[in-house]
Write a protein that binds this DNA or RNA. Structure first.
Lengths: 198, 198
DNA sequence: CAGAAAAATTAGACAGTGTTCAATTGTCCA
DNA sequence: TGGACAATTGAACACTGTCTAATTTTTCTG
């Protein structure tokens, strides 16, 4: 067939990403398949390849979309919170990962093939979440330079990320840890306290 | 054919794991294939399935083997070090991941299918690395209980793990961070200092 | 030592994958 | 109304993990 005019090119792109996102949430990275996405929206695989040069590009788009949801999730949790915003931030990070485990893990499961850099557009969209953290950390450290704040913020995100990974893959369960998010928050507080006095 | 008596069952198992390990190091998790392993050792795929119930079991064995190499690597680095063993520990963690990126990442890339728990034997072997960290952290905190030390050690491993992940997937490069290991070490020092006074 | 039982190994099939491409079909413009 | 163009498809290709029947080799038994 030719143009079915069911959807414009942009609409179709969006449709594919949405359905892909749905399937990623339901089945996880390992079971994800472009053919199944095509079947679900009533097109053939070739159409996906008309919109996305390769599966990697589709996965990239799906994961960037997850980043957007994640940022929104965290932003909403912070709205109107006056005290202890860092605690809310850390908990929101964990909660999103717990509530959307497959989507969250897919972000880190997908490794770009060597020589294919993360497109600037995706990079920019994904940066949003880091910017939120930088803003919050900066608010707590008025005497620190922007570059110091950014470096610390990235480091704190890495800290929380590590705890979240171990929480979700069962490493913490295995040794009876019942509050990984609390543990992460403790680490974050220690580092912020250290940055205040240093 | 039947038993070729080229190798005993145990030898063959070892041979498969070794070749699998080699290929995992060279190609990474995404490109790994049981068929290629079989071809490389001069057997057919079926033989692998005679030794391992499924691909997941082979991947499990390969990754557990990586854990063993990792423990050895860290232990050797610590040998004879008197001062600042924590710095050596953190650096060794990073160095192993950097020198064996594919192997290291495969550990976290491989997700067991739902309902298949990590066999106790693998769990025990993998725990070794954590035990090293617990020992080192405990040495620095003689006034803390064993359970407190274990909880902190796991948390510090998570912290370093998060930094290492971001270092290897390029997140730190992206924002001009040149010393992720140093950053992780700073975090670890802060937490240990906090545990000393608390 | 011969023959039967057991175990190891293989080839081949199956259903699935990502990717490519020629052929077709719908849409738009001159 | 035609012709150009782009979207869409189905089929092919070379893979993958997994399973099974058939074959071959070893081991056990009488």
């Amino acid at each position: 067939m030719g143009r079915r005019a069911d959807h414009s090119r942009a609409e179709l792109r969006e449709l594919i990403i949405e359905e892909g996102h749905r399937q990623m949430a339901a089945q996880g990275f390992a079971r994800f398949s472009a053919r199944q996405v095509a079947r679900a929206i009533g097109y053939s695989v070739g159409t996906i390849y008309n919109l996305f040069p390769s599966l990697d590009h589709l996965l990239l788009a799906i994961n960037t979309h997850t980043f957007a949801l994640w940022s929104d999730f965290v932003r909403r949790r912070l709205e109107g919170v006056g005290e202890d915003r860092i605690a809310v931030l850390v908990q929101a990070y964990f909660d999103f990962a717990s509530e959307h485990t497959n989507l969250w893990m897919a972000i880190f499961d997908h490794r770009l093939p060597p020589g294919m850099p993360l497109p600037a557009e995706d990079e920019e969209k994904r940066r949003e979440l880091t910017l939120i953290v930088i803003r919050e950390v900066g608010g707590l450290l008025p005497n620190r330079s922007q570059s110091e704040v950014e470096r610390l913020a990235r480091s704190l995100v890495a800290t929380v990320h590590g705890h979240c990974t171990y929480a979700l893959n069962g490493s913490f369960d295995l040794m009876g840890e019942t509050d990984p998010a609390g543990l992460a928050l403790t680490r974050v507080r220690e580092s912020i306290a250290a940055a205040k006095v240093a």
